[in-house]
Design a protein around this nucleic acid. Structure first.
Length: 268
DNA sequence: CTGACATCCTGACGGC
DNA sequence: TGCCGTCAGGATGTCA
């Protein structure tokens, strides 16, 4: 499931491969729920436009489109759970569950493939994302986000309108590294705990970006290459196994509607 | 407004 | 071996 580090890896990889390319033609699958913007509008905005830049905003990949050097629109790609954005030679057969193909001027194709169809394609003009950027937010601004909140800190970390980009893996991993139990009320964390969480979150995200993200489920980068951060997971998907720092059996429960794994000894 | 919960969708996996 | 039930989860919409 692509979260911030995975989406950043894909966005950077796609940027390197396709920036400056003109879009010659566009094909879409007609699966309605994939398209938040009606397909004809999307096709019209994309056809003939140049991809000036590709970057990550929250968990969304934004492609800045220009015509004759002028910004015209943004093409937004949300990978959902199983979405892939691949740059391929036109000769490579289309994978199953392909929902959009952008034929580029040099003959290659930018393809959106999504088996489970939680991904979404849309248009925007100046997309800012739903929340604050976790990799650069200051400790002070970070602490303010949780003030007075009654929900569990894990659920707060998953709320994209507070911080955008964090999903189940990095919520669990940062809480473990900050020694905070996922069920704690967000508004009741001490100043020291919030600082520890801010620091743990930023370092875990940085580390994961360096390793190309976590490959679980079918995440791959723009070249179809897997990341390596899954080898660094301390708690995610490790329920029933020993804690890597104290050997206590890791516990599993549901928080914020998501499977959550934590160490009952290390996380208080 | 805040928070809890169901819903979408299909591949992977475990059990029998 | 093969079938079937269960699980996974980001965003959105509904409801209290």
């Amino acid at each position: 499931m692509p979260e911030l580090p995975e989406v950043e890896t894909v966005a950077n990889g796609v940027h390197e491969r396709v920036h400056g390319q003109r879009i010659r033609s566009v094909w879409t699958s007609g699966k309605p729920q994939t398209f938040k913007t009606p397909e004809p509008d999307l096709v019209e905005a994309l056809t003939g436009a140049t991809i000036a830049r590709v970057r990550r905003i929250g968990k969304t990949i934004a492609l800045d489109l220009t015509r004759r050097g002028k910004h015209t629109a943004q093409f937004l790609v949300h990978l959902g759970m199983t979405g892939r954005l691949l740059v391929s030679a036109a000769e490579v057969p289309l994978p199953p569950h392909t929902h959009a193909v952008l034929a580029l001027a040099d003959g290659r194709e930018l393809r959106f493939v999504d088996a489970r169809r939680f991904g979404r394609l849309s248009l925007a003009t100046d997309y800012q994302g739903p929340g604050r950027e976790p990799t650069t937010i200051s400790p002070e601004d970070f602490a303010v986000l949780f003030k007075g909140r009654k929900l569990a800190i894990k659920a707060a970390l998953l709320n994209q309108s507070l911080l955008h980009g964090i999903g189940n893996i990095y919520a669990d991993e940062s809480l473990f590294r900050a020694s905070i139990r996922p069920t704690r009320q967000a508004g009741k964390l001490t100043r020291a705990e919030l600082l520890a969480l801010h620091s743990a979150l930023q370092s875990v995200l940085r580390h994961a970006i360096q390793l190309g993200g976590s490959s679980v489920s079918d995440y791959v980068d723009a070249d179809g290459v897997r990341g390596f951060f899954q080898l660094e997971h301390k708690v995610y998907s490790r329920a029933g196994q020993p804690c890597l720092s104290c050997a206590t059996t890791l516990k599993k429960l549901t928080v914020g509607g998501r499977t959550t794994v934590y160490c009952p000894h290390c996380q208080r």
